[in-house]
Simulated assay, not measured.
Amino acid sequence: MHNRVGRALLALSAVLALLMAGPATTATADTIQTGNTVCSMYVNSTGFGAYCTSGSAYLGDGTPPPTWRERLDGKPFVPCRNFPIPDGIHLPQAPEGKKWVLRVTITDYDLNTYNGGNKAHLERAYMPVNAEEEAQCPEPDYMDQFWTRFKSTYPTPALVVKPTFTPRVNIPAFFSLTKESSEQYKTTGELSGYYDPQHNLTMRGMVVEMKVDPGDGTAPFTCLMGTTPADDPDGYDETQDPFHQMNTCKHKYAKSSASQPDGMYTVKLTIIWEVSYWIGRDAGGWHSIGKATVTAVQRLPVQEVQAIGG
């Protein structure tokens, strides 16, 4: 997969500052179950992740996989676990003497199965708890095998400007993001808990839209983003001049930035991430969980030069 964003990471004269949109909301997918694992996933303006239950991966040794009861070896099953509130979630102040936790609970499980049974699923709740309420979900070491948690934050945006990083007056400037800053993968890998190599959960965050306010008083414009071939990662054809490009993510500055603070325009970016998941060789491909918005700013110098060179 190659996002419609450049691979070449340019040295920027001003660092992109990531500004979180808030208050953030969380979009979640239905709990999924494949092979030996049940997972609940989330996406918000800070990043995405999943909470899974089943235990260590079972790759097979010729015998049936052990049931949950067998793995407990006579110890009590604790179906809930408290986690920190995911980054990007904003909650009111907790009542006095309490704190907020994300409580994930395994429900409708069957201990006599290797994966909790077909009805097993996860339920999530943001709860204010005191010490006694928090202790309702103890975390004995032997229960660690049933829980897997992973998360990923969005990378800091890295803006690519073509044909030169410093745009010229009256010459179209084309905007994109580097692949490294517009596509993020996360997988549980060997700890996925799925019972064979064909079952592993992969999550992907990808920029699908970028709104650009060029900072010169003109109206913002929106750029749709997606996948492109490996030989055209940023959508800019180096064999053609700036006036003969198919890429529509462009802006033409009418005057230089000399009169602006520090001699640079302040470009505001509104970036839409879409997070999806994929399981093994799932014929259905990627399944969308939801979208999240991230904003950023970029200081950009524009020169009063009529030529492209430089």
Rank of each mutant, 00 (worst) to 15 (best):
P155S: 08
E134K: 08
A173G: 10
K151P: 00
S152E: 14
N118M: 10
R149N: 06
A135F: 02
R124C: 13
N170T: 12
N118G: 13
P138E: 05
F146K: 02
P157F: 03
P140A: 04
L122I: 09
Y154F: 14
P163N: 08
T178R: 08
E133K: 09
N130K: 01
E133D: 07
A125S: 14
S176N: 12
C137Y: 06
A120P: 03
S176G: 05
D141L: 11
F174N: 09
E133I: 11
E133V: 06
T113Q: 12
K119I: 02
T156F: 00
K151S: 15
E139P: 00
F165V: 11
E133S: 02
P163G: 01
P138Y: 07
A158S: 10
F165P: 12
L122G: 07
F165R: 15
M127Q: 14
T153F: 10
F174S: 06
D144N: 14
Y126A: 02
M143S: 05
A131F: 02
Y126H: 13
W147Q: 02
Y142A: 09
T164H: 14
F146T: 01
N115C: 07
M127S: 09
R168D: 08
Q145V: 10
Q145H: 04
T178S: 11
N118Y: 12
P155E: 00
D141R: 13
L159Y: 03
G116A: 09
P172A: 08
T153L: 13
C137F: 10
P140Q: 07
A135P: 09
E139V: 13
A173R: 11
P138R: 04
R168V: 04
T148S: 13
T164D: 10
K119M: 10
I171C: 06
A125Q: 15
V160F: 04
E133M: 09
T113L: 09
G117N: 13
Q145S: 08
T113Y: 07
E133R: 04
R168P: 00
N115K: 09
C137W: 05
D144H: 08
Y126L: 14
M143C: 01
Y142E: 06
T156K: 12
M143V: 05
D144C: 02
T113K: 12
T164L: 08
V169C: 02
K162C: 08
L159I: 13
N118T: 14
R124K: 15
F175Y: 15
P157C: 02
G116Q: 03
L122R: 03
T178N: 04
N112C: 10
A120N: 05
N170H: 11
F174W: 10
P163C: 04
P163Y: 06
G116V: 07
F146C: 01
M143R: 05
F165G: 00
A158N: 14
P155Q: 03
G117K: 11
T156Y: 00
E134Q: 14
F174T: 08
H121R: 13
T113M: 08
F146G: 01
L177A: 02
K119W: 11
K119Y: 13
T166W: 07
C137G: 02
Y126S: 07
E139D: 10
F165A: 09
E132D: 13
R124H: 15
R168T: 06
R168M: 10
G116P: 05
T153C: 05
V169T: 11
L177E: 07
P128Q: 01
P140Y: 06
P157V: 10
P140G: 01
P163K: 05
K179L: 13
S152W: 00
F165L: 13
N170F: 12
